[in-house]
């Protein structure tokens, strides 16, 4: 039981990572109703971008100096991948059936994974990611790593920035308009194409942030890391109410907490002794999704909206 605060802390950290990635899913889905399957790979390539930047810097450079460069590289790579995907793969299919863009997204996801596997040097196994210097910090009953501190600070700052952006800038408001009614928005003079690209780009940037955080936390990047994490992040977006940015982050936190708690405490429940631990954590996350869909299909944190017949 004394582990509870640590479990909660771990859950929140994990959850903020999911939340950052979930933002990308929710923004794109909110505007074009597309599950951007390849977003997990956007996340993954961001991580590799950061790694590449690090490797290219002269050795012995302090990680604190390297970090912004790595972040920049991650964002650059992620955003390029996302924007290219939108331009070349998704845009030509706008207006077609629901199935076609989904299949394209799956193909894209597989192709990008394989490209990294085949062409990035030594990517067939996981590649080591640098560690932030500075020992673990004790905050009362909880121990956090430096990377975790980075994650929390980055998540909070970027969320605040995004909220401000969506509410107070022209582009942000245009995005809201496009999400609600793309045809009218276009008639109002909003360049919906540009808005869509912006949504992809912002989502990618957030995913890049999460990728660097992931690398710092787990010490490695792997060509497969996008798949499961991406899946969970989309689950988080659904949990929080798809299309809602706050929902994405809150859903992420909820999912992270659920996973951590399940891993730590399910084994104490009668009859479920064998179903605890990390192996089954994913299963419990999935069960959570099903339960939420049963009880509150619009998501935990969304408001009901009318649907014009």
């Amino acid at each position: 039981m004394h582990e509870l605060p640590q479990t909660l802390a771990n859950g929140l950290l994990l959850g903020s990572m999911y939340g950052l990635i979930a933002i990308g899913y929710t923004m794109v889905y909110g505007i074009v109703q597309l599950i951007n399957f390849a977003h997990g790979e956007v996340f993954m390539t961001g991580g590799f971008g950061a790694l590449t930047a690090f490797l290219m810097l002269p050795s012995g450079v302090s990680l604190w100096l390297a970090l912004p460069v790595m972040l920049l590289a991650a964002v650059l790579v992620s955003t390029s991948v996302a924007v290219l995907a939108e331009r070349l793969a998704y845009r030509p299919l706008r207006g077609s059936s629901r199935l076609a863009p989904l299949i394209t997204a799956i193909g894209l996801s597989i192709a990008i994974q394989q490209m990294v596997w085949a062409w990035y040097p030594d990517a067939k196994q996981a590649r080591t990611f640098p560690h932030l210097p500075g020992g673990p910090y004790e905050l009362g009953p909880v121990t956090v790593q430096t990377g975790d501190v980075f994650l929390v600070v980055a998540a909070v700052l970027s969320m605040l920035a995004l909220m401000w952006f969506v509410r107070s800038t022209r582009t942000g408001r245009a995005m809201q308009a496009t999400a609600q009614d793309p045809d009218t928005s276009r008639l109002m003079g909003i360049n919906t194409d540009r808005i869509i690209v912006t949504a992809f780009a912002i989502g990618a940037a957030f995913a890049a942030l999460a990728a660097v955080a992931h690398g710092l936390r787990y010490g490695q990047v792997d060509f497969r890391m996008g798949f499961i994490t991406g899946l969970k992040a989309f689950t988080a977006a659904v949990l929080g109410g798809i299309g809602s940015i706050q929902g994405a982050m809150l859903g992420g936190l909820a999912l992270g907490l659920a996973e951590a708690l399940a891993a730590g405490y399910v084994k104490f429940l009668p009859g479920l002794e064998l179903f605890g631990g990390g192996a089954w954590a994913n299963v419990w996350a999935f069960v959570l999704l099903i339960v939420v869909l049963l009880i509150r299909p619009q998501g935990l944190f969304s408001k009901l909206t009318a649907d014009r017949a």
Partner: peptide, 20 residues
Amino acid sequence: QDYQLMAFGIALILLMRFRP
């Protein structure tokens, strides 16, 4: 062999683009 899965992914993209 090494490029099979990659080709598969690309093929899906092309298929949906040109003959959905």
